[in-house]
Simulated assay, not measured.
Amino acid sequence: MTSPSPTDLVRCSPTKGCGELKPRSLMAQPGPRAPLCWACYQRMRRAHQGPAVARRANLWAKYRITPEQYDVLREDQQCRCAICGIHETEIDVSRVGGRPRKDGTQLVKVPLAVDHDHATGAVRGLLCPTCNVGLGSFGDDPARLLRAVAYLERCSQQRDSDATPL
């Protein structure tokens, strides 16, 4: 792999961006005034977005759905987790959300996370944080989940048989 020639390098704006020399292909605004690399351009653009705009952009970028489609899913599930059935009002939202916004505005904290098939990208439903993390921990593998169920049932039966009646 050859390194770019000095003429192919552009300095990202030191006042608005990172100030690093980067290949022209990585520049979002390669013009003569305040060129910005893609990373700095995205950071600057997001800093000027409100929470609703950021939520719309994130839902579309990650799952290819709109907030309106999310709301339809939510209503179809009666505001409950698709696995355990907990209602969204019972979910502790203090543990929900991403990184804090640099501009200090509040994050839109949504208790039900979008669950999707990692192989196809298809949205499957909405899950509470606990069920979402659980599925992710099992790698979305039904065989692993079934083995976990079998394990729990064996342990439960063993515990019940070990209990001595009073």
Score class of each variant (00 low, 15 high):
92 D>Q: 08
100 P>Y: 03
58 N>R: 15
15 T>F: 08
161 S>P: 00
112 L>C: 00
137 S>Q: 06
66 T>V: 07
149 V>F: 09
18 C>L: 12
46 R>I: 01
18 C>V: 06
2 T>C: 02
2 T>R: 15
121 G>I: 03
106 Q>I: 00
136 G>T: 05
13 S>L: 00
23 P>M: 06
143 A>I: 12
102 K>M: 00
11 R>D: 01
73 L>P: 11
55 R>I: 01
114 V>P: 08
96 V>K: 07
53 V>I: 15
30 P>Q: 11
80 R>T: 01
83 I>Q: 05
72 V>G: 07
109 K>Y: 05
143 A>W: 05
107 L>H: 08
98 G>K: 02
108 V>K: 12
75 E>R: 15
110 V>L: 13
43 R>G: 01
122 A>C: 09
139 G>W: 07
135 L>M: 13
165 P>G: 04
150 A>S: 05
28 A>M: 05
134 G>K: 09
112 L>M: 08
84 C>E: 11
109 K>N: 03
38 W>Y: 12
163 A>N: 05
108 V>M: 12
94 S>V: 02
100 P>Q: 14
25 S>P: 03
19 G>Q: 05
63 Y>M: 00
116 H>S: 08
6 P>E: 14
60 W>D: 05
27 M>A: 12
51 P>G: 04
110 V>I: 15
84 C>Q: 12
64 R>N: 13
33 R>D: 13
92 D>P: 08
77 Q>G: 12
121 G>A: 03
72 V>D: 08
49 Q>I: 00
94 S>R: 14
145 L>R: 01
60 W>Q: 02
41 Y>M: 01
117 D>M: 09
127 L>Y: 13
66 T>M: 07
121 G>V: 04
50 G>K: 09
49 Q>C: 12
31 G>T: 05
50 G>L: 07
12 C>Q: 02
2 T>I: 11
66 T>H: 08
110 V>A: 05
36 L>Q: 01
33 R>F: 04
124 R>N: 04
154 R>A: 05
7 T>W: 07
110 V>N: 13
143 A>M: 09
150 A>E: 07
43 R>M: 01
35 P>Y: 10
28 A>D: 01
138 F>D: 02
76 D>W: 09
75 E>C: 09
84 C>S: 13
85 G>R: 06
81 C>K: 04
59 L>W: 02
6 P>Y: 06
154 R>G: 00
37 C>L: 01
134 G>R: 10
13 S>K: 06
12 C>A: 11
147 R>E: 15
42 Q>R: 15
152 L>K: 08
91 I>P: 04
30 P>V: 11
103 D>N: 15
23 P>G: 01
9 L>I: 04
142 P>L: 10
56 R>D: 10
